[in-house]
Write a protein that binds this DNA or RNA. Structure first.
Lengths: 209, 209
DNA sequence: GTCTATAAGACGATAGAC
DNA sequence: GTCTATCGTCTTATAGAC
């Protein structure tokens, strides 16, 4: 693995374990057996590592959305999509948590076009929900869809942070199951009989112990 | 106002505006016209200011819960309770955001008994929802109530953070209305006809433009 | 690309005079 | 309670050898 890749990976490990603010660049360098100067060569600012990690997460999510759109628009596949997103959230939690704090800077920063990305995501989400409605999986009015979008935005952005905040000791699998179950219940409230069966298929595949 | 009080107030203003990590103790002192040493006399650690603010928020919430329990258990009053909580969240957002980050430390810290408080809150929430069910406002099974608790935990803890992160430009009133409307829709999904009327009363009193 | 060495500047925190 | 002065540590940046 290239040094640059190793820095990214090690930094994420430390951020997840100790929190961004409590990790020094010296510490990352020492743990890799390289000099701080060398780390500076690859990332002149500590914050730059953060943005690379956020970008990585964003690209992973793009891929998850693409994967969904290539398949049939069912609630089962939708839950698979959300599972991928939550897994990436979990993986990048130390970076995403910190990103919330420099929110003011983010919005005018061009390394991540943050507001544009979240606008795009919201439009994609709306398309997906409407697709699920036409496919007979959701019985949702326009205002129901608006509500679900509000819910999903909050859910996708913060559920892993809640897990990290309150129960940092829990295993990934346990955490993800908890939130996917919550999501399944919410979606079932707006699902048709066909949609409910699709949710049950997801449940039996991924949520059984 | 005493110096100590002025420090707390000014610190919160700065935290809300720039984020905890981007505010120095020197900056707070300068804006108050006192020396950094004097600020250190009142708060030996910057973190201590954070904990005072968090405690302030927690006590405000305690009061909101007490107020609710003295009134009739209706969905209208429940939404009023949540409105109070959201307002305090909004007021303390700069501090609460940062608190997420030192979560690991918090759990073993005795300045805030964090895990105990959240356990207590969850029990209170469960009681309230069960009260609403017996009062004929909610038609919710035991598992429905479990779901609502999961939702409300996430909602109460992170909705204001979402607002702060994505739309820091919006006014308090606008932000609160958006989330109260979202909450009203969620509760209506489990409400009886009587409960729905109670929600509508809340809506007409507080959510009209 | 990688290293050593080092300096600048900001920060939280502390010591001691008044 | 309030001040000035200072310490130690951190990020960031740069110069120059290999």
């Amino acid at each position: 693995m290239k040094t640059r890749e190793k820095i990214i990976q090690t930094a994420l490990d430390f951020f997840n374990k100790k929190g961004y603010a409590n990790v020094g660049v010296r510490e990352i360098a020492r743990s890799l057996g390289i000099s701080p100067g060398n780390l500076s060569y690859h990332f002149s600012k500590k914050e730059d590592i953060l943005f690379v990690l956020a970008k990585q997460h964003s690209l992973t999510n793009d891929q998850s959305f693409e994967d969904f759109l290539e398949k049939e628009a069912t609630l089962e596949n939708f839950l698979v999509l959300m599972m991928s997103i939550l897994k990436s959230q979990y993986l990048h939690r130390g970076a995403l948590l910190e990103l919330s704090l420099i929110a003011a800077d983010i919005q005018t920063d061009d390394r991540l076009n943050y507001t544009e990305t979240s606008r795009r995501r919201q439009a994609t989400l709306k398309n997906i929900l409407e697709l699920l409605a036409t496919n007979g999986h959701l019985k949702a009015s326009a205002s129901d869809i608006q509500f679900l979008i509000s819910f999903l935005k909050l859910f996708a952005r913060f559920s892993m942070q809640e897990a990290f905040l309150l129960d940092s000791f829990r295993e990934e699998k346990e955490v993800i199951s908890y939130y996917l179950n919550m999501l399944a219940i919410q979606m079932a409230l707006f699902a048709t009989a066909k949609g409910k069966r699709s949710i049950e298929r997801f449940r039996s595949k991924y949520l059984t112990e």
